[in-house]
Amino acid sequence: MVKVIAVETEEEVAAVKALIYEFIDWLGARYPELEELIKDYFSNQGFDEEMSNLLGVFGPPGGACLLAYHQGEPVGILMMKPHGETEVEMNRMFVKESARGLGIGKALAVRLVEEARRIGYDWMILSALDRHFEALPLYRGLGFVDDSERPPDSGDEREIRLKLDLRSGDALRPPRPDRS
Rank of each mutant, 00 (worst) to 15 (best):
R158Y: 08
A15E: 02
E115Q: 10
V13Y: 04
F42G: 08
P74R: 01
R158N: 12
L37P: 03
G155Q: 14
S52D: 11
E97V: 08
R100D: 10
F94T: 00
G155E: 11
C65W: 05
L129F: 15
T9C: 02
A64M: 03
E159S: 02
M51E: 14
L27W: 01
V88A: 10
V7G: 04
V2Y: 00
A64S: 06
L126T: 03
L136N: 00
G120K: 06
G169N: 01
D40M: 09
V75K: 00
G84K: 04
E159T: 03
L67I: 05
E12W: 13
R140A: 10
I119L: 02
G169Q: 01
D178Y: 14
R176K: 07
E33F: 09
E87C: 08
S52E: 10
G46F: 01
I160N: 09
L67Y: 06
F23R: 08
S98D: 10
L164E: 03
L27N: 03
V2A: 02
Y31G: 15
K96P: 08
V145C: 07
E149F: 09
S98T: 14
L129A: 11
Y139Q: 02
R161S: 15
M51W: 11
S52R: 05
G76N: 09
R140T: 13
G105H: 10
D48K: 14
G72T: 09
G169P: 00
F47Q: 11
S52K: 07
L166S: 06
D130L: 11
G28Q: 13
A68V: 01
E149L: 15
R158D: 14
V57M: 05
A14F: 04
Y121I: 00
E49T: 05
G62W: 07
S154D: 12
P60F: 03
E114Y: 11
P74W: 02
G63Q: 10
W26N: 12
F58H: 06
V57G: 04
V2L: 11
T9E: 02
V7K: 07
R100T: 14
Q45P: 05
I160M: 08
N44W: 11
A15R: 01
E12I: 08
L136V: 15
I24G: 15
P74G: 00
P137D: 12
L142W: 06
R30T: 14
G120D: 06
D130T: 13
Y21N: 13
E35F: 06
N91R: 15
V110Y: 09
E114I: 13
K17W: 00
G28L: 13
C65M: 08
D25A: 14
D146K: 13
K163L: 05
I77F: 04
E12V: 06
K81Q: 07
D48L: 12
